[in-house]
């Protein structure tokens, strides 16, 4: 113990348990329990490839949002406007596609809309300055309002084969959307673990004063992080639009922020910032996905589903806080 560290040969614990981490182990156990319960209740349907792909599709949108939310929470912030940005971006996509007659132009416009919405969040938070929860609570309502305004509250159908292909096409038997999720996951994992910017975001969330004094331009970081979150929401919106072939101001995107935040916290994000992993968040996403799917298969009424999801978020935070108290931080 008292030896001078002379080299960087030492590595993190090499055991399998150590690598995966206690938090992720308990998430895996929770996931296994859920699978076992719903598998036992509906053995005829649950394990069919079709249902498993359904779960995969259902978690694509949530997965993208949850990973982006993880980065936001790690930086010490929160973005509760993401659900509204998803809706807004599908509307922009639909309108732009309609006006220009070009699906790629529509997609570009939709993604741009998400990026701009995220930058707006970042600017309000940094230069207001407004507390992130309040700022994005406000824009959650504002962006939703904007989405309704675009077609008087109605959805807009989109016609175009390229978008349809994106929605229903497959590669090696897996839908495009699931490949997109896998690619996004790889990118997020590399970003958070192997890049300087990723590490600096952990520093920023861990202690903004330390980060600032170490020369990290924290305002630029914060704006970029919310821009990234908005852009990710627009990517999720693209997936939604390709599946429904329409711009939807609210349907399909309402309540996504709740699920994304729940997944991130289930996955080990500390709301105080500085802590959280992409893998953990994705395990949280799978738990929510299986729970949603299982509740539909077992015909749990929608109202109870909402109740269960709300309870899950609060439960996740309670578990987090208990752990924090125990580790004495």
């Amino acid at each position: 113990m008292t030896d001078t560290a002379t080299a960087g040969r030492e590595r993190a614990p090499a055991s399998l348990f150590g690598r995966i981490g206690a938090q992720n182990i308990s998430l895996l156990i929770a996931l296994a329990v859920l699978v076992a319960i719903f598998g036992a209740l509906r053995p005829d349907v649950f394990f069919t490839p079709r249902n498993l792909i359904n779960i995969g599709l259902a978690v694509t949108i949530l997965g993208i949002l949850a990973m982006a939310q993880t980065v936001v929470i790690v930086s010490g912030g929160l973005d509760i406007s993401v659900g509204s940005i998803v809706g807004l971006s599908t509307m922009v996509l639909a309108v732009a596609a309609q006006e220009t007659g070009s699906i790629p132009a529509g997609i570009l416009a939709g993604l741009l809309a998400g990026l701009v919405a995220g930058v707006v969040n970042g600017l309000i938070i940094v230069y207001g300055p407004v507390n992130a929860v309040i700022a994005t609570l406000g824009t959650m309502s504002a962006f939703r309002g904007l989405a309704y305004l675009m077609n008087n509250g109605n959805s807009i159908p989109i016609t175009g084969d390229s978008l349809r292909t994106l929605g229903i096409g497959t590669l090696f038997g897996l839908p495009f959307a699931i490949w997109l999720l896998i690619a996004a996951m790889a990118a997020f994992i590399v970003f958070t673990r192997e890049t300087v910017v990723g590490r600096n975001i952990y520093a920023l969330g861990g202690n903004p004063t330390v980060a600032r004094l170490a020369g990290i331009p924290i305002r630029r970081y914060q704006i970029s992080i919310y821009a990234m979150s908005g852009f990710a929401a627009a990517v999720a919106g693209l997936v939604l639009a390709s599946r429904t072939m329409s711009g939807q101001p609210a349907s399909g995107s309402q309540g996504l922020e709740l699920e994304a935040i729940t997944a991130a916290i289930l996955g080990g994000c500390a709301l105080q910032g500085g802590k959280g992993t992409i893998v953990g968040a994705m395990l949280g996403v799978l738990i929510i996905g299986v729970l949603n799917n299982g509740m539909i298969l077992t015909s749990v009424p929608t109202f109870y589903q909402l109740l269960a999801k709300g309870a899950l978020l609060i439960l996740a935070v309670i578990v987090q806080e208990r752990q924090r108290a125990r580790s004495g931080e």
Partner: peptide, 20 residues
């Protein structure tokens, strides 16, 4: 503790913070 160090992070992270 409040202004210089990320207490939960490794010595490695704390040293390399200013030399990206």
């Amino acid at each position: 503790k409040q202004e210089a160090l990320l207490l939960m992070q490794a010595v490695r992270d704390n040293v390399s913070l200013v030399v990206p």
